[in-house]
Design a protein around this nucleic acid. Sequence first.
DNA 1: CCAAAAGTGTTTGCTCTACACCCATGG
DNA 2: CCATGGGTGTAGAGCAAACACTTTTGG
Lengths: 227, 227
Amino acid sequence: MVYCYEYPRPAVTVDVVAFTVRQERLQVLLVQRERPPFAGAWALPGGFVGMEEPLEAAAARELAEETGVSDAYLEQLYTYGDPGRDPRGRVITVAYFALIPADAPVRAEGGDDAAQARWFPVDDLPPLAFDHADIVTYALRRLRYKLEYTAVGFQLLPETFTLTELQRVYEIILGEKLDKRNFRRRILRAGVIEPTPYFRSGEGRPARLYRYREDAVAEVKARRLFP
Amino acid sequence: MVYCYEYPRPAVTVDVVAFTVRQERLQVLLVQRERPPFAGAWALPGGFVGMEEPLEAAAARELAEETGVSDAYLEQLYTYGDPGRDPRGRVITVAYFALIPADAPVRAEGGDDAAQARWFPVDDLPPLAFDHADIVTYALRRLRYKLEYTAVGFQLLPETFTLTELQRVYEIILGEKLDKRNFRRRILRAGVIEPTPYFRSGEGRPARLYRYREDAVAEVKARRLFP
DNA sequence: CCAAAAGTGTTTGCTCTACACCCATGG
DNA sequence: CCATGGGTGTAGAGCAAACACTTTTGG
């Protein structure tokens, strides 16, 4: 064991950029800080990493504490460690991004006890504490980029979903309309989702429900410079 | 300032996977450990992050200490923090990968004073300390992937280079022969390198020298799922 | 039977791939 | 003049983009 008084050590935290699609908008989960620094300001959910806790477990724990969601898609994003990013001293944070299904029963909408937690549309965020605005910007770029060449979009939907719903998610995140026929052809060709025998009735003709294929490889190689 | 005795803190290190192409092979820089744990074993160059030192600066410093190279291409790779990855206790490491030009005057080839440092071909590595084998594997995957859709390959070459030299780098790293005409067309279309007025004479017809365009955007978007 | 949303194919253009010969220099 | 590596174009195939109508249900 290396002891603490050998050398001073930075503190290590995790922060989570949790995305969801609600009310036809891409939203990010923020919590309101209660203590200085930045007391009262909005920030990403996060906290210190336990001494025996893997990093991803810490991110999952922080996310679960704020939302109650425990099976979200979680991916390491980047590690921010500039001295001076935290006025309290040297704090290195490992940022994660998470995709929360639209039907996940997210509690704390309104903040019952401790820290208030709320969803904010990504294009209408309040000022954020620390360098969290940079982190969100980077997470958003990564999310868009991932959508372009993988099929992670369904992680933002319930277990079964219609192709129209999935297309809406892509349109909302990418910020542009997509052609229905081309969308369907490509998303199906990618082979990461499969039809179920079920349909959903609403207004108009019922739509077939699809689900994620457990055995699928999420990364769909796009055209490469040197195939 | 948050003081050390508030909570125990993990130690934070950086490790660098430095690639170069020598003797027609892709090689990785390793250092031989002098102290336990894993005394005598080979490991990635790396070390503790200074309390006032940015992470990338720490990686650059470690790389410079081992090689004398101070202007390499450096990119954050991933942060490894499993408890138990270091037998001394909780050590979180931020891994970087670096591309070293073939003509860089790398000293310590043979280890003059302290730790011995050597290049090893990636396909013939010794057993590595800690989880460094995992880190190298991931860095290699990322390097191949980057080569496929960007034009970072020239970072492994001197400031000016011929297209044939560049093609060799790609072939060595990707492990397959490429068509000369298609390679040239695509690499030039990507627009990240430009011809100089100079030629290099060797055996046969002299070859035009190219250089990196400072103003170029390195990321060449490949075919996307939803353009 | 009308409104509303689901579902479905084809044509056109572009980009990737495969492939072989002439060019410029040094010895 | 010969050996060596540098440099160049094209035809065919496959993929992506654009585009409009028919189908199924509920009210």
